[in-house]
Every structure is written in C-alpha cells, then in structure tokens.
Design a protein around this nucleic acid. Structure first.
Lengths: 223, 223
DNA sequence: GGGATTCAATTGTCAGATGATCTATCGACT
DNA sequence: AGTCGATAGATCATCTGACAATTGAATCCC
C-alpha cells in the first residue's frame, strides 16, 4: 500500500507552507498569500489551513495580523524556551538539580559580566540600583521580585540572550520554594548581592564566583 | 504607550491548557478532557480551542488521536529541529552568543561529570563508546548525529536534567552551522573528544575545560 | 469462549456567516 | 496646498452547525 496512514490535511498544509517559503526564498517580513487564497491553492478548507498557520505561528515561523495578512516571521529562542517547560526533563525536577543548574548558569556567566562591565558602566549602576532597592523592601513579595530582577540583570549583563531566556525558565520552576525564605535570610541575601557586585566591579572573578555559589546554594538548606 | 491589544482567545486557551497540565501534574500519556469539554470549560468555541491544541500539538506538548482524544505528549526536540531548522534565515540568534552559551553550559558541567564518573563507571564507557563510533563515521550526517549524541551524553553525565533540556534546545539552533563543518575538522573533532574523555577520567578538570572550550569555540572560525 | 459486528465517543474536515482591525484612499476644512 | 478625519475594502478572528473518519469497547452470534 502506498500510505499506511493518511497524512492529515493540516500536516500536509504546514509542509506546503514551509515549502512555499523556502522555494521562494522568503525572509522575515515578506508577505504570504491570504488565508483564502492559500486554502484555495492547496485545495483545502480555510479552517484546516488556519490550523496549519496557527501551528506555524506558535513557533513564530509565520505571523498573522488582523487586517493585514500573513507574513513570514522570525524565530527567537525566547519563544521556544517559553514552551520548553514541558520538556520531560523539566516537568518534574529535583530541587537540588535546579539549584545546581542555576549555579552553573550564573557563575559561568560572571567572566563575561566582568568583561562587559569594564566597557559599559551602566551595568554596574543597574545592579547597584537593584541592591539599593532591597533596603526599602518591606514584604516578601517585593523581596522576591527584586531577587529575580537582580539575577536576571546579572544574566543580561553577560549579553548572552539564550542564557537569559533559560534563566527565566528556571526561575519559573524555582518560584515554589523561593517563598519559604525566612526574614532572617533576606538581610544575608542583600549583603551577598552587594558583595557580589563589589567583587565584579573589581574584576575579582574567583571571589565573585564563590560568593554567588554560596548565595544560590543557601537555598539547599530550605528543602 | 502600551498597546492595549486584547489577547486572542486562542492564545489564552493555549496558556490555560498548559496551566491545566502543570497544575494537575500530568505527564506524558495522561488523558486530557475532550475538545468539547475543554471548549465548554474555557467558554470558547470548539474551533478556537482546536487552533490552540493544534499549536500545542505542533511541539508535541499534546497529542491527539482520532476516536481516542487528547493526551499529554513529550516534547521531541528532533521534531522541533525539523521545523525550526528548515530555513536558517528565520532564526534570529547571534551565532557568537550561541557558542558562548554552549561553552558556559558544557564546561560548567564538567566538575559534576568528574564527580559522578568516579562513582559510576558506565559513564566513561558510554562516552568512549560514542568516541569509538566516530571512527566508522563515513558521511557528514552520521558525524553530526554522533557529535550531538556525545555532547548530550556529556550533559546527561552531570545528572542535571534541566541543563540537558536546555542543551537540546541549543543544539536545535546550532544545527545550521554544524552542517558547514569540513571533513578536515572531523578528525580534529574526534581527537578532541577523545582527549576530553581522557582528561575527565583522570579528574583533570582544568585541562578538560580548556579542551572543551577550544573544541566548541572552533565553530567561531566558520561564521 | 472467541471472533465478528455494531455502536457510541471523539477527533477531522468542511461550509457559511458575522465581527474586529488594519490600510489606503478620498474628501472636507483650514 | 496641506492636514486631519471618515469611509470603504481587505483580511484575520471567532462562532454555529453539520457530517465524515477513526477508534475502542460493548454486543451479538456461533
């Protein structure tokens, strides 16, 4: 037999659309035919075509705007990371692994941060600004928000977008046991952040690494 | 000014479905409500709900079978690669950032690998097995497959699932310039892999780190 | 009891219609 | 003449309703 299982109309459509894009060497921003036209060309209903385009849109391969039409999109890692949370390895993660992963990610980034801090003084300003805001934090909620902001800024300071995206994802899973931080730990955390920035500003990578590692691993005591 | 655009029904639906899965801690294979039920619960038409599920299905987050219903799926990175890698022009990630990210990720993992290698001898066996298979690789395709396999095994050897997941994602975006590897580079790559395993087996983390960094950064010459 | 059949449940596909939103053109007013 | 606003057309967004295709289990027949 030719086809064991008949390929679904929708899946054929997605392939056809991708083929259309490649064949005509279309790039981000280029126009695609309208839904009606595409459906007619492929000989399927507009609905099936929509299911196809919506799938492609999910990853950013195409973009659709009301009143405008379909255009070729640009895929960025952030979008994919956003949905990656369902990767089998992440659905049910051991907190220890989560912590270790964060240590690797954030300490690994420090050499890059130091390098970029030397060129761009706004990075240090930004980090110190957040540290300063810690002082006026009164409740757990704002404290957590600031903590996330600080660590995100740290990753951003490396200039490595993929790691920022991944860091965001880790934070989502980290959230649940962040809330168990005791008031006593705040103060220590604030001091730790401040020392970290100091080390970075002086280019003392090893000290900064040790400080950051200790800071993140302190979460292990609360598991 | 903040563009106040109403979030589309479909996008809300995808979020709701993901939320549903996470909230109930559903894993691959678990059943979801039927389309009709879901649509009713969310207060939207079955059609809009379908566009949502089809999007999720595109990444493998959910699976649907005629006559059976919806089940939770397992994200298949190969599938993601297949869709994402079809047109390099659509990918918007700075290659340098990609390489640097990989360096941080994989070198950061090495101390953990060494530690676990000491306890579990199968790890070294596994890595050497892949290195051995490189010898018999005849075409670019199998070479690439082995390279991916090696680096994935390396991450797995750390025991840190989140990083494995992230590594998978990076490989998706890395794919495109893997294909530009010249035959001459194969041999060097194989040797580098072998040296890396040797260093790891001896617990020489610094040497291993340097070797791995050099290996990954060699891609920079081909940009 | 075992195999074939029927049937209910569920997804797959279609057609048609209406609302929402964007672009562009045209016209009025200064 | 130039600017602003309104109108119209194009296009996507969403809904309703219906029927076909597929699956899995209950049922029936021997």
């Amino acid at each position: 037999m030719q086809t064991l299982r008949r390929s679904k109309v929708r899946d054929q459509a997605t392939e056809q659309i991708k083929h259309y894009i490649v064949e005509r060497k279309l790039g981000p921003g280029d126009r695609l035919p309208t839904e009606t036209q595409l459906a007619e060309t492929l000989g399927i209903s507009r609905l099936s075509l929509r299911e196809a385009t919506k799938s492609l849109e999910f990853l950013g391969i195409v973009k659709s705007k009301t009143g405008v039409g379909l255009t070729v999109g640009r895929i960025d890692m952030e979008r994919v990371t956003e949905h990656l949370g369902f990767h089998a390895g992440l659905l049910d993660v051991d907190p220890h692994q989560l912590i270790d992963s964060r240590v690797i990610l954030e300490t690994g980034v420090l050499p890059y941060v130091v390098r970029r801090m030397a060129d761009d003084p706004t990075i240090e300003t930004r980090l110190r600004e957040i540290v300063g805001q810690f002082e006026s934090a009164r409740d757990l909620k704002t404290f957590i928000a600031l903590d996330i902001q600080f660590h995100r800024s740290l990753l951003e300071a490396s200039g490595l977008q993929p790691l920022v995206a991944f860091g965001d994802l880790l934070h989502v899973f980290f959230q649940r046991f962040r809330e168990s931080v005791k008031q006593a730990a705040w103060k220590a955390g604030v001091e730790s952040h401040r020392r970290l920035v100091d080390f970075l500003a002086k280019g003392r990578i090893d000290d900064a690494t040790a400080e950051l590692r200790k800071h993140i691993e302190s979460h292990k005591e609360r598991i």
